[in-house]
Amino acid sequence: SEFSSRSGYGEYVQQTLQPGMRVRMLDDYEEISAGDEGEFRQSNNGIPPVQVFWQSTGRTYWVHWHMLEILGP
């Protein structure tokens, strides 16, 4: 990996993601499973900070930056 740390990767995702971009989950996290795909909606200063609309659940759920792989527009 070109990223030395999880936080470095998270910063990359945070700087790159734009609303509407497709993402894939890298880790299991509460209701969301690794491999689930969705659409980035928004972020804020909460914890976790990233709101994604997940195809698997049909609704939005908040996750962490480093848990997401960017699939593209």
Rank of each mutant, 00 (worst) to 15 (best):
G38M: 02
R41Y: 07
D36K: 01
E39H: 04
L26S: 01
I32V: 12
L17N: 05
P19N: 01
P49A: 05
H66D: 13
V52H: 04
Q55C: 05
E11F: 10
W62Q: 15
D36P: 02
D27L: 13
E2M: 13
V63T: 02
Q14P: 01
L17G: 02
V52I: 13
M67Y: 08
Y12G: 08
P73K: 11
Y61F: 09
W54G: 03
V50L: 02
Y29C: 00
P73W: 09
G46S: 14
V23F: 01
E11S: 10
S56A: 10
N45T: 10
G72P: 15
V63Y: 04
Q55Y: 14
F53Y: 07
E2Q: 06
V63P: 06
I47M: 12
Y61H: 14
D36Q: 00
S56L: 02
F3I: 09
G8T: 10
L17A: 04
H64R: 00
Q15P: 08
E30L: 06
T16Y: 06
V52A: 03
F53Q: 15
F3A: 07
T57M: 12
V23K: 12
W65I: 03
S4L: 07
E11H: 07
A34S: 09
I47C: 15
P49T: 00
E30R: 09
D28R: 04
Y12W: 14
L26V: 08
F3K: 07
Q14V: 08
Q42I: 11
A34C: 11
Y12I: 11
E37L: 11
I32H: 00
F3W: 07
F40A: 05
P19K: 02
T16V: 08
G8M: 14
I47G: 07
S5C: 09
T57S: 10
R22Y: 03
F40V: 13
P73F: 04
E11R: 14
E37M: 04
E69V: 00
G35V: 00
I32T: 01
P19L: 11
Q55D: 11
S5P: 07
G35A: 10
V50S: 05
Y12N: 10
E69D: 06
G35S: 03
V23I: 07
G10R: 08
S56Y: 03
W62L: 11
F3D: 14
M25G: 01
T60K: 03
L68K: 06
E69H: 03
Y9P: 02
G20C: 02
F3V: 09
N44L: 04
I47N: 15
F40Y: 07
S1L: 11
E39G: 00
N45S: 12
Q42W: 04
S4C: 15
G38W: 00
Y61I: 07
W62C: 09
E11W: 11
F40W: 01
P73Y: 10
I47A: 12
H66Q: 07
V23T: 05
D36F: 09
M25W: 06
E2V: 12
G20I: 00
R24Y: 11
W65S: 01
G38L: 06
S1G: 13
D36T: 05
F3R: 10
W54K: 03
G35I: 04
T16F: 13
S43H: 04
M25A: 11
P48K: 04
